[in-house]
Computed example of a mutant assay.
Amino acid sequence: MNLRSNSMATIVAVALLTSVLAGPLLAAPAAADGTFVSVTVDSSTDQPVPESEFAVTPTLRNADDSDESYVVDSVRLRKTAARSSKQYAERTSLGRLDPGETIRPNLNVTLNETGAQTLYVHAELRGFDGDTRRIVHPLDITVQQPHPQLEVSTEEAVTGAERRMNVTVANGLNDSVRQVKLSLASESIEFREADRVAATLGAGETRTFTFAATADTGEKTPMRAVLTYTDPDGERRRSAETFDADFRPPENPGSIDLTGVSVESDESGATGDRVSISGSAANLGGERVDSVVVSVVDEENVAPAQPQPEYFVGTVESSDFVSFDLDARLTNNRTEIPVRVRYSVDGVTQETTTTVSYEPETAGDSDRPNRSGTSLPLFGGLVVVLAVVVGAVLWRRRE
């Protein structure tokens, strides 16, 4: 059934005297049916929609056989039966209500929440004896969703990364819609493709459209979504909503730190020191990193050296590490070695440089005799001396 054919039953009820705003509690004036004022409520539309004004018209009638007249001070539409609840509309100083007479004030209302809800008409009447009476009357109303509903979610990624943005279209209408087109636009978001289409979207059906989106800012970013479609009557309909797309980065993105780095000298000569660097590339973040490469930075008095000027680590999972080895050539007593780490998180390249300390050999270190080399000649000399002494003793004994 088409939404336009829906109807909301007119609420007709008899409002009873509920309280006294000033003075003691008084009984209602005597009347044949035990009431003094009847109230009915009409709505100007049977399909109120969000953010569109419509009229609610309470009808206050003083019974024909009533023996008292009243002054209607105000009629208000509130969220609940409580006098302090949110007020949607009001009319004041509505005049005198004599027996057999009717007052029908219009209350213009705009509601933002969809679905079934109960509002309350509050009428305040003042008798000529000075006593004030209040009537509270419920009004059941359903605010229809005029279009299929949209919902936006964004994949978590580091700032600047292309990420998936999912826009879900839920057709809560009673009929199918066709020739559906969804378009996104934003001054701060770049979409690889900003439009999606579907032939039909059935009644009660939900469909998710995925967009590739990139934002340079790591924060919530305004985005406008426009849905156009053809309704069952052949009318082209359009719905536009603005969302705050969440492009905030994760709290603990993948990141690479170098740990346990050590430097050893392989050789020293006129061309400088050739050193080997070893350590681990550790991912301290909460997500995987890819394409990790560790390399020696070519600077003054330091250069990458063969056979390992750089090391391709590859992928490092969260809370994991991979070992690496590098070679470098140092000159002029260079004591610092810059090591660059380049890797990718969510498709975005990251780069950091770590300085590794190295203590080159001095001239005294190179002239110092090698202890492991000098121990063998000394031992051989002692053996020769001992052999000479033993030989001399034996020769004397023979004499």
Rank of each mutant, 00 (worst) to 15 (best):
P138R: 07
R224M: 11
E190Q: 04
F191L: 07
T132K: 12
L150Q: 13
A215T: 03
Q144P: 00
L201H: 00
A215G: 07
T118C: 09
Q149W: 08
E151C: 12
G130P: 06
A185V: 06
L227T: 09
A194C: 01
M165N: 08
E193G: 06
H137F: 14
N174K: 06
G127A: 13
V226D: 12
D131Y: 14
H122L: 09
K220S: 11
V121R: 04
F191K: 02
G202H: 03
G172C: 10
R196D: 12
S153G: 10
V167P: 04
A225P: 09
T228R: 05
S186N: 04
R164P: 02
E187K: 09
E162L: 05
R163N: 07
R134I: 08
D140M: 09
D175W: 01
E193H: 06
E205K: 07
V136T: 15
G204N: 06
D129W: 10
L125A: 04
K181H: 07
P222Y: 11
E156L: 13
N108T: 14
R196Y: 09
V226R: 10
V109H: 08
T114S: 14
A203W: 01
V167Q: 02
V169I: 15
K220H: 09
S186I: 02
L201R: 00
E124N: 13
V136H: 07
L111D: 14
L111T: 13
L139Q: 09
T132G: 05
G127I: 02
H137P: 01
G172L: 12
A225L: 12
A198K: 03
S183I: 11
A212P: 07
N174Q: 11
Q145G: 05
A116N: 12
D175K: 06
N174D: 08
G127E: 08
N108Y: 15
R164C: 09
D195T: 12
S186V: 02
T206P: 01
R196K: 15
A203Q: 01
Y120V: 02
P138H: 08
T206C: 04
A185S: 14
D195H: 06
Q117G: 12
R207M: 07
S176D: 07
S176T: 05
A161S: 03
R164W: 13
H137R: 12
L201F: 01
D131H: 15
